[in-house]
């Protein structure tokens, strides 16, 4: 008995890998279809903030994630772009992460197709090129945005674009949202939001989500979308279900697996101790 339990405790980890593969793949092939309930308070706060903004307000959306965190953050970005454009807000898409430019192109291609076909580039939204040195860019955005962002990603001058009308610095914008898998949101809070009294919100990976609790409590962040659950919550709020919702459904069985594994190994340890 003791031997068998000890052996079970040292099970080949490839079997655990296989169990995870099966439990994560199965719901992709045949979705469980469980509803995403219990929406997070911080996600609802962003939604409400955008809902209450006057029409044609400017939302600065900094998309700073690359393919490594795509499954978590891309659905967040798509949902926020949908919400802002459908609410008739102006959207400026920025990036300070060179790996993000391809992701942004994906959103750019989708806006005229299915996100907001009636919106016009240059009038309702604009996409800026990548810029190095986040801190320098953020500091400059608080003074005069055109000294760095004088051209959009296609090389067209931004100063005369209708979408940029009345915007000189972030002080003229309504809200900033940074979606990132790095510490970029920390920089935004420090170098842009706090310094310029600019309302800022974020979308981050689940891994870094708990780290932003202090900023939320002080109001330095107006809201936070965390991981795939956050994306699913936002999709539920705008009533437009996509990858976030199907993703969180598929994670169900795998999450239960982790709990079962931790409990099993600890129970075995306990039994072995008294055997």
């Amino acid at each position: 008995m003791k031997n068998a339990l000890e052996k079970f405790l040292k099970i080949d980890r490839r079997l655990i890998f296989l169990a995870l593969t099966v439990l994560l793949f199965a719901p992709i092939v045949k979705p469980l279809g469980l509803p995403n309930k219990n929406l997070g308070k911080d996600v609802v706060n962003i939604y409400n903030y955008i809902e209450n903004m006057p029409e044609r307000s400017f939302v600065m959306l900094s998309l700073d994630y690359d393919p490594a965190t795509r499954p978590e953050l891309h659905p967040q970005a798509v949902a926020v772009v949908k919400h802002a454009l459908r609410r008739n807000l102006r959207v400026g898409i920025f990036t300070l992460n060179a790996g993000a430019t391809g992701m942004i192109e994906d959103i750019a291609a989708r806006i005229p197709k299915d996100i907001a076909p009636d919106k016009v580039y240059g009038r309702d939204y604009v996409i800026m090129p990548f810029q190095p040195h986040p801190v320098a860019v953020m500091t400059q955005m608080g003074i005069n945005i055109y000294e760095i962002y004088d051209k959009d990603r296609n090389g067209n001058p931004t100063r005369d674009m209708e979408v940029m009308k009345g915007i000189k610095s972030v002080k003229d914008m309504g809200l900033g949202i940074c979606i990132t898998g790095t510490a970029m949101l920390d920089y935004y809070v420090a170098y842009l939001a706090d310094k310029n009294k600019f309302p800022m919100a974020g979308g981050v990976t689940a891994v870094s989500q708990p780290g932003y609790g202090p900023y939320l409590q002080t109001g330095q962040l107006k809201g936070l979308i965390g991981g795939m659950k956050g994306a699913a919550d936002y999709e539920s709020l705008i009533n437009d279900v996509e990858k976030g919702t199907s993703g969180i459904d598929a994670l169900s069985l795998a999450h239960v697996l982790v709990i079962v594994l931790i409990l099993t190994s600890n129970i075995i340890m306990l039994v072995l101790k008294y055997l």
């Binding site: 992709i28 499954p71 978590e72 891994v207 994670l251 999450h255 982790v258």
Partner: peptide, 10 residues
């Protein structure tokens, strides 16, 4: 756990 599984799901 949720974060890593999300990436794998992707």
């Amino acid at each position: 756990v949720m974060g890593r599984f999300s990436l794998l799901y992707g």
